[in-house]
Structures are given as structure tokens and as C-alpha cells.
Design a binder for these strands. Structure first.
Lengths: 232, 232
DNA sequence: GTCTATATCGGGATAGAC
DNA sequence: GTCTATCCCGATATAGAC
């Protein structure tokens, strides 16, 4: 078992080396893209041998996983703050999403390369996979909190699965954002605002008797999808 | 310009060789996965030199693109038939999806690897990209036809963007299917049935005045997203 | 135009010595 | 923990047979 699985036990020097490699890697990913950046270059720029880089990171993609992890940790307090300050459902969700988009902004060009394994269940980097479960659940917690703080009043059955749906919504928006080459990705911001408005409207209407069959079907849908994830 | 860009001019023998390479490649992809199958092995098993394999296919991924193309062509008549025989909106859409799932079934294990570039706009294999536009538009046509045949009666503004939404829905379902390891991917079938039921219900309700603001917002949403695709 | 053979390169990944 | 050496494979290049 290599040291990246044992971060509590490592020596100061090891942690320093590991961190240096990761920093150089991310910098090169940003500057040249994921494919173009080579591990030889990363190792050289970090002042270690190629073999040593592999001692710390099992693969090139492990560097990406480490980036995910670090990002999740660093964004946590930012999101907590943003959540505390924002008022209302739409504002709160916007706050969460804004932290993410700002954090990932400089990495947008290579985020696509990161997420490209989204459709591959075997891949550790898949946002739906087992290895990313921790990050995913943390994200859902934010949305649960936003709903809770906003005292969103929807039928209980629906309320239960809203965090999951919001997380899925977030993934869709990030996907759009990666493809968005409008100035400053303003189109994504528009899409976010409009879709959140749509959602708020839908949530207000969710209690209407007319929509009951629709709601029941949606919940049944989520139940099936969840069953799938459970034994994934 | 290599022969794959000039399929009308090739000799019988050339077409045979090209096809043989593609068949062997797909077989190996299925048996060993995309990564594990090597071009050297593909060439050897097809009885051609490595250089010759590259003569017909610019890259390993070009083999995948060729598979997409062939799949789209081979499924076209099947889908037309299925559409002609099925009655009602849900049955028709189910028919389209069933043809796809059956066709892709044997390749499910490596479809994930194929679609793994879905989130990378630079990649030719992206289902949202320029190189796959032809296939994508053909797919949307099927959904347009299913809607038309079923005389689905929804406000015109909504009707206009339904094929696009159904295509997106299809992509989501395929993604779920790739992750679905229930017996015979029955969960995907359940999800398909339930979600189509949900959609049918939603379409029936779409004309209600109560839902007008919701509908308008949805259409505005699609408009923004489309604008994005236009200059993509 | 179709095909073989072979050499070469770049880069991810690994083995094993220290 | 760190290194050097090596392997494997995708991709390219070249020279030539038919």
C-alpha cells in the first residue's frame, strides 16, 4: 500500500513531496491540458524521478482524484459560509454552485478531461462510482441544507429525494458549463438562473392535487434509480 | 486522404479488408475491453500489418467512430419498422429505445469506454460534438416521428423542442443502462417504462393554464441551451 | 491504391536496486 | 522513498512489393 492511502502516517518530507508533485501536475494540466502534460515533465518540474512520482500517485488519473479530494475539502468551508449568508432557496443553491464554478473556473479546460470517465462505471474517476461516493454524499448534504434552511414546503415523499435530484441537476449544469464557450460562461449562469426559477415554480406547485400523479411517478422513478445505486 | 473518407471509391477487396479489421476490433473490444485490446493484436488477428490497420483507421478511436456509424446505419431500418408497428406515444418511444438497447446489448461492457469522452467537447467521440452531429440529428428525427405519429397534442412552443428533450432523455437512460448491473438490465427497463409514463402524464397536463408558467420557463431553458449548441 | 515489414518515438506504467 | 532501466503500446515514418 502506497503512501497516498495513508496520509496520517507520512513523514513531513513525504507529505511535502507529494504535495509538490500534485501542485506541479495541476499547474501543467491547466497550462497544457490533461493529455499534453506528461508525467515525465511533471516529475522533472517537481524535481523527482518518474518512478518516484508513481510512488506517490498510482496513475496519472490518481492525480485527478487527488485534485477532486482537495477541491472538495477546500470548498467545504466556502460553501458553508455561502450557505449561511444567502437567503432563500434559489439564492442558496446559486451560492453553492457559484463556489464550485469559481473554484473550478481556472481548471475548466481540463475539467472535461477529468469528467470524461463519467460514463465508465469501472473507472475510479466516475462521478457516480464508489471511489467518489464520499465527495458525492458531501455535495448532497449541501443541497439538503439549502432546502432545510429555506423551509421548502413540499410533500414529504418528494422532499426526501430532492437532494439527490439537485445533485444530478448540478452534474448536468457542470457538463453544460464544460461545453459552454460563451464569454465568461455567461450562458451557464443564465441556464442556472432560469432552471432554478423553474424548479422553484415546480416546487410551489408540487402540492397541487392536479400534480399528484406526476409527483408520485417522479418519486417512483427515483426509487428505481436509487435501488440501482445501492448495489452499485 | 485515406480510404475511409472515400467509401464510394474503394475496391471490393479494400472494403472487405476494412470491414474485417473493424469486425476483429469490435470482437476484441467486447472480449477484452477497449483499453486492453491492442492495435497490434487487432491487426494480427485480422491478418494485416499494423501499418495497414492504420491505413484504414486513423486511430484506435476511429474504430469506435466507425462502429457508431455502422450501428446508426444498421439500426435505421429496424427503428423505422419498429416505429411503423408500434401504436401510441409510449409504445413508439419504447420501440426506438428497445432497438438501441438490443443492438448495443452485446457491447454494453465496452460502451462505457466508448462514451467516456462524453464530457470532453474536444473529443470527436463526444455524443454532443460536431463529428457525431449526423447521428444525433437522425436520432432526433425518430423521436419527432414518434411524436408526430402519436398525434401528441401539446402547445406548439413545447412541441418544437420535444425531440431534443427526448434525445437528451435517451442519453440519460443509456448512461443509466451502462451502470445497470441488474439481471438483463431490467432496472433500466423499469426506469424506461416509469419515466415514459411520467412523460405521457406531463404531456397531457402541459396544456393546463396552471402549468403555463412552468412550460414557458422550460421552453426558455431549452432556448438558452440551444443557443449554446448553435455556436458549438 | 493496397499492403508488408520494420524502425522509431513518445509516454504511461512497472521492477527492482539502493 | 528514491532512483534507473525497462516494457508496452499508440502512433508515425519509411521503403518497397504488387
Amino acid at each position: 500500500m502506497t503512501s497516498q492511502n495513508n496520509p496520517g502516517r507520512v513523514t513531513e518530507k513525504a507529505a511535502e513531496t507529494r504535495s509538490r508533485i500534485l501542485n506541479v501536475a495541476l499547474d501543467l494540466f491547466r497550462r497544457k491540458g490533461f493529455e499534453q502534460a506528461t508525467l515525465r515533465e511533471i516529475a522533472a518540474e517537481a524535481g523527482v524521478s518518474l518512478g518516484n512520482a508513481y510512488y506517490y500517485f498510482d496513475s496519472k488519473e490518481a492525480l485527478v482524484m487527488a485534485f477532486y479530494s482537495r477541491a472538495s475539502d477546500e470548498m467545504a468551508p466556502l460553501i458553508e459560509n455561502a450557505l449561511a449568508e444567502a437567503k432563500g432557496f434559489e439564492k442558496r443553491v446559486t451560492a453553492i454552485l457559484s463556489v464550485k464554478f469559481e473554484y473550478f473556473g481556472p481548471n475548466r479546460a481540463f475539467l472535461g478531461a477529468l469528467l470524461r470517465h463519467g460514463a465508465d462505471p469501472q473507472n475510479p474517476l466516475s462521478p457516480f462510482g464508489e471511489e467518489t461516493r464520499h465527495i458525492r454524499e458531501r455535495d448532497m448534504e449541501y443541497f439538503a441544507k439549502a432546502l432545510e434552511l429555506s423551509r421548502i414546503d413540499v410533500p414529504k415523499d418528494l422532499a426526501r429525494c430532492l437532494p439527490k435530484l439537485l445533485w444530478l441537476y448540478q452534474m448536468g449544469l457542470i457538463l453544460f458549463w464544460i461545453y459552454d464557450h460563451s464569454d465568461g460562461q455567461q450562458r451557464t449562469a443564465q441556464l442556472r438562473d432560469k432552471s432554478l426559477g423553474l424548479m422553484a415554480t415546480a416546487l410551489k406547485l408540487a402540492g397541487f392535487p392536479l400534480l399528484r400523479p406526476l409527483r408520485k411517478k417522479l418519486i417512483e422513478l427515483v426509487r428505481i434509480a436509487e435501488g440501482e445505486q445501492a448495489d452499485a
